[in-house]
Simulated assay, not measured.
Amino acid sequence: MKIRPRVAADDALLTALWERSVRATHDFIAEDDIQRLYPLIRDSYLPALHVQVLENPDASPAGFIATSDNTVEMLFVEPAQRGQGIGRKLLDQVRRPGLKVDVNEQNPKAHGFYRHYGFVDCGRSATDGEGKPFPIIHMQLQDR
């Protein structure tokens, strides 16, 4: 498995992976929100962020990580491949002192994953960045 930068031709596959992952892990998000976010992920977010793709041997994406400045904006793994170290490999690719991530409070597995990796809670917001009632836990990577 190799990690490489995203190219524009990846966007449809990465957005489909995003949708599968969200459906598997974000049961608190309504269908309307998924449908509204889908074209934004594909057409706006992916092109605007620094995205790294971890490829399977057949060149299909196993997961991807998107960063902006010193913040992990997205980390999604193919649902059938969760628990195989893909998220850790992607985080290792972008690891740097003070790296930050926001996690949905209603996604305790993701919160636990980031805590296990070395992030610590450093704040909480009652709503997400769009003002929706999805509490967010703000986390920051602690130096080893």
Rank of each mutant, 00 (worst) to 15 (best):
A59Q: 15
E31P: 10
I86S: 05
S60D: 12
D43P: 02
V103H: 03
Y38Q: 14
V103G: 00
R95N: 10
Y38T: 12
N104W: 03
I86G: 07
E19N: 13
A48Y: 00
S60M: 08
F76R: 06
P57H: 12
L99H: 02
D58P: 00
Y45V: 02
P47H: 10
P79I: 03
R82Q: 15
P108Q: 07
R42P: 00
Y45T: 01
D92V: 08
D92W: 09
K109W: 00
R88V: 09
A48H: 06
L54V: 11
V103Q: 02
R23Q: 14
R96N: 07
I86M: 07
R42Q: 15
L40F: 05
P57L: 13
N107T: 06
L46M: 07
V51D: 06
I29A: 07
L40Y: 06
Q81L: 15
E19Q: 15
Q81N: 04
A62Q: 14
H50V: 14
L90K: 09
D102K: 03
L40V: 13
G63E: 08
F64H: 10
N107S: 11
H26F: 11
V53S: 00
T71S: 12
E73A: 13
V51H: 01
L46I: 10
L14H: 05
A48W: 04
A24S: 14
L91S: 11
D102L: 00
A59K: 13
V94H: 02
F76Y: 13
